[in-house]
Amino acid sequence: MAEHTAMPPGTTGPVHHKDYHAAKMGMWLFLFTEILLFGGLFLLYASYRAKFPMAFHAGGASLDVFLGGLNTVVLITSSLTVALSITALRRGEITRCLWLLAFTVACAGGFMVNKAIEWGAKFHHGLVPGSEHMAGLPQGQSIFYGLYFAMTGLHGVHVVIGASVLLWVMLLIRQGKVTGADYVVLENAGLYWHIVDLVWIYLFPLFYLIS
């Protein structure tokens, strides 16, 4: 693996000043802002849950544990395939890497379809964000569903962004711009995808399993 591009002494050659560690550190710094963004929402959730425990219980009971659990499995599996794709790329197994990433993007699609089914069922019951019906619910319930839509919605936006970034990286790999020797772009895209997974790991028990 370690070719370390031994350049003949004396030749300068084209030096791309790419700093692997700085690139990764920059990505982590960005991820901290994501953690604090969702952290603030979790804080809001925790505070209102302490104030309206019964409404949160009832709200949690109305969510579909099967769909939530299925989406957990889908996201964790997609995290695995991203991690595997980095290994594949570094071993020079480009085709396998691309298939693993395609599978990840497919998982993201599956996740969003499940989410659409779930939200659809809620809409069907008149639970539409900003609607008269939702505002007219008892305060605790309207706050629960408000947080549910806000947090799973913001998370869903992250799923779409993460999948788009992974598609873009797939293109770069096909073009040979991201390779087994220079793969930090894939690694950083993977880090973003894992954060999306991480947020869901907390969202799932807090919303679906509290009844």
């Binding site: 370390h4 591009t5 700093d19 692997y20 690139a23 570094r90 020797a181 220079d182």
Partner: peptide, 16 residues
């Protein structure tokens, strides 16, 4: 830090 190729990682890829 500056190997010029971006190959400045330490660890071998994790196994499947």
């Amino acid at each position: 830090m500056y190997t010029g190729t971006g190959e400045a990682h330490a660890h071998a890829p994790l196994s499947y």
